[in-house]
Amino acid sequence: MGEPLNVGIVGLGTISKQYFDTFATLDSVRITAVADLDAELTGRVAEGLGAAACTVPELVTRDDVDLVLNLTIPVAHRDVALAAIAGGKGVYGEKPLALDTAQAREVLTAADNAGVVVGCAPDTVLGTGTQTARKAIDDGLIGRPIAASATMLVPGHERWHPNPDFYYQPGGGPLLDMGPYYLSALITLLGPVAAVTGAASRTRSTRTIGSGPRTGQSIPVATDTHITAILTHESGALSTVMMSFDVVATRTANIEIHGELGSLVVPDPNRFAGDVQLQTLESKEWEVLPVSAGYLNAGRGIGIADLAATPDGEVPRAGGALAFHVLDVMEAVLASSVSGAARTIGSTVARPSAVPLQTMW
């Protein structure tokens, strides 16, 4: 009790710096070991952090590692998670939990058998943006929720990413890339999803890289790049979701929640903070709600601190069960877009508990 959670990190790519920055502000998390396929990078990062430089097999068996933070590419998520669990470690991974629900189920089953915890990004839903909107709903400011819309509309990651190939291959696309942020927020706000109907299209067969050393290179598109879905929540609320790498621009809010008495504009779920706006039948104009819930000044990795603070026997807010349900919903949307038929969601999850207004440091 009172000791920091010792974290070993596997995968030291671009996203890792955001975790380093957050952990530097937390007393409850300590980085003790790092590993990457690039041994030179591993050594350099380890020296800068005062951590041990390891291979993955070494890291997952170290006595000074309690939890493995898995920041590898999605295709490696399952194997690294299973190695960590086999070493008796908890695991927290970047989204998605695994490439598909079959792999994700392996991870959760292994963790359950080993008695270790699984957590998964995104933890942006723990910030003041989504949580202030959650409190407004729970406080009855919009009455009974009846509908929501969620949109992520951009012209494509190849315009800024120097190596965007993965985004246009199976396992990529706008839904699997950005959907976890939006679906995690919708489930946090409105509860689990019972059924979906999806449709998808693919505008172009190739994309041209717009930045970096490969500028001008053409890459193939092997997955759909515009996804539309209707989600029927167990509560009866209906969410319309649109994820696209084909849209030039939009002025539509990221997420809107509509109830019998009012409507909410929810800030970008890829961010921790932002203004929540409310309009009711009585007010007839938008007002910005005061920040009233969530972790203040949060950054990526706050989900691990929240996990560490979760009492034994309780489910972490950014837990494996939520990540599995999100992946299940995304798989069903894509399957529905192929078959043209609605799909029932086989999994469910408890709506994560609300985060009172607080800091972690």
Rank of each mutant, 00 (worst) to 15 (best):
V241M: 05
L357A: 09
G13F: 03
A237Y: 11
G198A: 03
S347K: 03
R271Y: 08
T22K: 02
A354Q: 08
N254K: 12
I257G: 13
L175V: 05
D268I: 03
V45N: 00
I209G: 08
V45Q: 02
M243S: 01
I257L: 14
D139L: 00
P267A: 02
G301N: 07
T22N: 04
T310K: 07
T344V: 13
I9L: 12
I73E: 00
V288W: 00
R251Q: 15
L12T: 03
L264V: 11
G8H: 11
I219E: 01
K17V: 14
Y295I: 15
T206G: 00
F324D: 09
A335I: 05
I73R: 06
A35I: 09
G313P: 04
G179A: 02
L12M: 00
T348F: 08
A253Q: 14
V355H: 00
D328R: 15
G198R: 02
C54L: 06
P4C: 09
S205W: 08
Y19H: 14
M242E: 12
D328G: 14
R204A: 12
G259Y: 10
T223P: 01
Q279P: 05
R251P: 11
L37E: 07
A273T: 11
A98K: 03
T232N: 09
S244H: 01
Y168I: 03
G212V: 06
A39G: 00
G259S: 08
A33T: 13
G274W: 01
A147C: 08
L322W: 04
A136Y: 04
A33P: 11
A253S: 15
L99N: 14
M178H: 14
N297T: 10
L281I: 10
M178C: 12
S28Q: 12
A308K: 15
L175T: 08
P170H: 06
K17I: 13
A185M: 08
I31V: 14
T14S: 14
H325S: 14
R44P: 00
V29M: 12
I304F: 11
D100R: 02
V355L: 00
H233F: 07
P213M: 04
R317N: 04
A342W: 03
T151F: 10
